[in-house]
């Protein structure tokens, strides 16, 4: 069983549109009933808008804890505010209260409170879903706005997807990753067999591709690169390709800028299903064939 994770560094390069198209293409190929899709971009979970899942299972996701001050026993000493390194204790109208958004859940205040007036409470910070996606089982989640613990939710989504894939002898899992290079990206990358970076040939896109590439390599996972909206700035696309060549990273194709991708999104369909002959669809099909080959290398 192999895990493919789609990343980008910079947001909005087209990760989700590419992932959705991969799910569609996989469903038309040799491994039609042999894969699972997971959406690991839990604070901007857009894959479901295209894969139109029918919900099978829904679970509350409990994140970290937050401190709550019991106002009846509080002695107003202010010690909690002194020890809090997250500026999470507000003092207004003579009362101390915890700002749950700023609270890191460290409980330092709990142990310092002389009247034992502070306790930790677990918070529901999101929802975890298992669905029948349009083309395969879909594992996804929704982190409530402003919440912490996205990495843990990413791990949960991936773990559950992986377990089903192992149970049912499925061949691969396709994971739509989050932007950036931090905690959720590291969680998404951990355990992956292959990372596809969807790069954008803009000055920002190139900069961020370098950072995500370093991150993926830092964790010892193999990365390959495709270039989206390649014709918007061909110089940038050339720069990406020559960089990859020098550094021994496989590039697997260019996707042209194509508004069909947006039209497909509005219709709630992967672009390859919406309009298979569109330039972007044709390019993604070619890329999928290469990605699949790299992913399954030595496995099947």
């Amino acid at each position: 069983m192999r895990q493919l994770v789609v990343l980008s560094g910079k947001g909005g390069t087209g990760k989700t549109s590419v992932t959705a198209a991969f799910a569609h293409l996989a469903s038309e190929g040799e491994y039609a009933d042999k894969f699972i899709v997971a959406d690991a971009d839990v604070d901007a979970a857009n894959l479901e808008l295209v894969l139109q899942p029918q919900l099978l299972e829904e679970q509350e996701f409990k994140g970290g804890q937050v401190a709550v001050i019991n106002q009846d026993t509080c002695a107003f000493c202010g010690e909690c505010q002194d020890v809090c390194r997250f500026d999470a204790i507000d003092y207004t109208d003579g009362l101390y209260a915890v700002d749950p958004i700023a609270c890191d859940g460290c409980a330092a205040c709990v142990y310092q409170c002389s009247t034992e007036s502070i306790a930790m409470y677990e918070q529901v910070v999101g929802k975890f879903y298992v669905s029948n996606g349009r083309y395969s089982p879909l594992y996804h989640a929704n982190l409530y706005p402003g919440q912490d613990n996205s990495g843990k939710l990413v791990t949960l989504v991936k773990q559950r997807a992986r377990l089903q894939a192992l149970d049912e002898d499925r061949v691969f899992v396709i994971v739509d990753g989050p932007p950036g290079i931090g905690c959720p990206v590291i969680s998404a990358t951990s355990g992956a067999d292959l990372v596809l970076i969807v790069a954008e040939p803009t000055i920002s896109g190139v900069h961020d591709m370098h950072r995500v590439l370093q991150t993926v390599q830092h964790f010892g996972v193999q990365a390959i690169v495709c270039i989206n909206k390649a014709d918007v700035y061909p110089d940038g696309a050339d720069e990406i390709e020559s960089f990859c060549e020098v550094n021994g990273i496989q590039t697997v194709g260019r996707i042209p800028f194509d508004l069909t991708v947006t039209s497909a999104m509005v219709e709630g369909e992967p672009v390859t299903a919406f309009h298979p002959e569109a330039p972007a669809s044709m390019a993604i099909s070619t890329i999928w064939a290469e990605v699949l080959e790299s992913l399954l290398e030595g496995e099947v």
Partner: peptide, 10 residues
């Protein structure tokens, strides 16, 4: 036997 999972409480 493997890299950290980075269960991620961040």
């Amino acid at each position: 036997t493997h890299e950290g999972h980075h269960g991620g409480s961040h």
